[in-house]
Amino acid sequence: MKEIVVLSGKGGTGKTSIVASFAALAQSKVLADCDVDAADLYLLLQPQVQEEKEFWSGQVAFIDKEKCIECEICQDICRFGAIENYVVDPISCEGCSFCYQVCPVDAITMRESMVGHWFISDTSYGALVHARLGIAEENSGKLVALVRQNAKLIAEKQNLDYIISDGPPGIGCPVISSLSGASLALLVTEPTLSGIHDLERVIAVCRHFGIPTLVCINKYDINEENTHQIENYCYKEGIEVAAKIPFDNVVTEAIVHGLPVVEYSEGKLTQEIRSLWQYIACALE
């Protein structure tokens, strides 16, 4: 079983459209949407939810006004600035429980909070594990780990060849949680200066965690000079550019129709994504 995670550094480069296309092209796979803050893969795969589970994680401090003697110790020691006038701001509270430990009159309790949901769904392309983090909640890294863990269980139980994950943008906590221990990272970039800058940072993260990496340049014809620059950079870094996908508004049309683009159009773009998937399947053999 091989796990492919699609990342990009910069957002909006086309990760989800590519993952949805792989869902239609690959045999024997389970899909995972690891972008739990802004999960969009379900919009293209039209899942039927089979199991819905609550995600309880993280604690928030609560001060009992009746017991509080307003000694201010909790306000002084909280490094997250979460306590003001003896009231905890649940958004700023990081659940460290330092205040709970030091309160001299036991006026503080730590309360578990339900911060999201996760789902196992059926799609016409196979099982999908996805999640929805509550608005403005923390612990997206833990929820990502839970999504991956369950995708892996399904892959093992059904003896599937691939786990294909749609990763979050950036290089921080949820990205690291999506990436660690994966078989391959496919980095989708675009030929803009921002795309190049962000690609370099996400390549460094993949290298830091020792994950084999391939690059795909999306909308490569928007700026061919920048595309050459990306190719040169990857060559120097010893990373293969597995595909160059042209700009085509069919990608947006497919999103509007709620379909993977390879199911929506038979043009050049679809051919490129097909050969990209073949390239990845070969690279993983």
């Binding site: 957002g11 909006g12 739990v36 803050d37 802004a38 958004i91 983090l133 608005i135 403005a136 909640e137 923390e138 997206s140 979050p168 943008p169 950036g170 921080g172 949820p174």
Partner: peptide
């Protein structure tokens, strides 16, 4: 701001 809806955005 970064994309998303979790702690860095807040």
């Amino acid at each position: 701001v970064s994309p998303g809806t979790s702690c860095p955005v807040v």
